[in-house]
Design a protein around this nucleic acid. Structure first.
Lengths: 229, 229
DNA sequence: TTACGCCTTATGTCTATATCTTTTGAGAAA
DNA sequence: TTTCTCAAAAGATATAGACATAAGGCGTAA
């Protein structure tokens, strides 16, 4: 077979990493590259498009393609369901519902989730264990105005995350990571000392503009989120 | 013009999100889809390829394409240089070199960076300020065996990150995020209280299998890393 | 029954060509 | 000089057709 887009991509990347193509320098256009590689323009296009997607090069119509001065470093972060995350670690997963109650939304949550004055929420507190040891504390609020069937559902066996993913699988979300100090409750549930630094994720989820759920995930002491790029 | 791959992609996504195509169900093959949309197979292919890339559908040769049972939730995380990060917040950026010294690698670092017994490292400590307030504390070690020119370089004006990016722009890296308690040093530099929970990133960088640098980035109290998906 | 090896099929990719869109730069007009 | 308009350039995308590759499934031989 003739040359593949992967080979073209690899060759261009090699030229860039080995300094044959300097950062900031502009590259030949697609037609010329296709001619020099002896392949079709579409092949070069795909290679270049992926390189642009990877943040290595920068493409602009008419202006042409150039090697980025500061290549964009980016990673892909998979957001797993905690049960899968634990099982991928090779540990046994156990789930426990600590507390579940439908209630009027407190003010701070109403503001945060953009709820209406009378909206009720289902407040769930859960624990996730890996090999019997506390792994993650989950504090979740579900908007019952948007998802009334949640009130009837029994969360003692399967976690709200799994239920939500199977009930409303395709949503928009915002996730944020930060550090918090363990208060007495976290110290208790996560088997650590009050004041310990804990890694926490917060996620808000929307379905067609409507806020579905807000969740605070607090990890056991020492948790790390690791990625390659 | 006729139908675009974006329209095809959007239509398939709509069918999935609105439940016309159930999770786990298999989809028509590319030839049939192309016929039903009245476009070329390549157009359908690109739409489907992107959906697969987004973790919405799953494709296997011969087996065909099906909607993922558990759509993979993933985000793209850009790793900015701290100066750019601060300027994008609309704040004034200031950099300061706290400490810089070439020294033999301590044992823990030798192990971590996989250095040889006699390798020396350049240990740099820096601070990054946003509008005059502490933003990030940087503790960095550069492998002088791999990058001897670092020892001659003066880091008082530009940060080691920027220098590294312009010197060895294309590297492999691993990044990890976690929470730490502020010790006296951090409390001092980051203007917080000892014991405060701080968000910390650690990054190790390789060039062609050789460890270049290890860095610990500790953010000011309350820092959040936020992403949409 | 089991294991091996074809055959078929769906996706993966390339070619060659054409049209569309965006953007820039030149030239005209104010 | 400044602003507007238009044409050319380069990437973005569409098409039709072909071949490549992986893998499920069935038939045959052990």
């Amino acid at each position: 077979m003739s040359i593949t887009y992967r080979e073209v991509k690899a060759d261009i990347l090699r030229q860039i990493t080995q300094g044959e193509l300097a950062p900031g320098s502009s590259m030949p256009n697609e037609v010329d590259l296709a001619a020099s590689y002896g392949c079709a323009r579409a092949t070069v296009n795909r290679a270049m498009r992926e390189l642009a997607d990877d943040g290595i090069i920068e493409r602009r119509r008419k202006a042409g393609t150039r090697v980025r001065l500061n290549p964009i470093r980016q990673v892909r972060l998979n957001i797993p369901i905690v049960g899968q995350e634990i099982e991928e670690l090779g540990a046994a997963y156990r789930y426990a519902l600590v507390h579940g109650q439908a209630e009027p939304a407190p003010n701070w949550l109403r503001a945060r989730m953009a709820l209406k004055r009378d909206d009720r929420v289902l407040h769930l507190t859960c624990m996730h264990y890996a090999d019997g040891a506390p792994y993650q504390h989950e504090d979740r609020w579900i908007n019952l105005g948007a998802l009334p069937e949640a009130e009837q559902h029994d969360f003692s066996d399967i976690g709200p995350n799994e239920w939500l993913v199977s009930t409303v699988p395709f949503t928009d979300a915002q996730i944020s990571f930060h550090a918090v100090q363990a208060d007495a409750t976290f110290a208790d549930y996560l088997d650590c000392t009050e004041g310990d630094a804990l890694f926490q994720a917060e996620r808000m989820t929307w379905l067609e503009g409507q806020t579905i759920t807000f969740v605070q995930l607090t990890y056991r002491r020492g948790h790390r989120l690791t990625m390659q790029y």
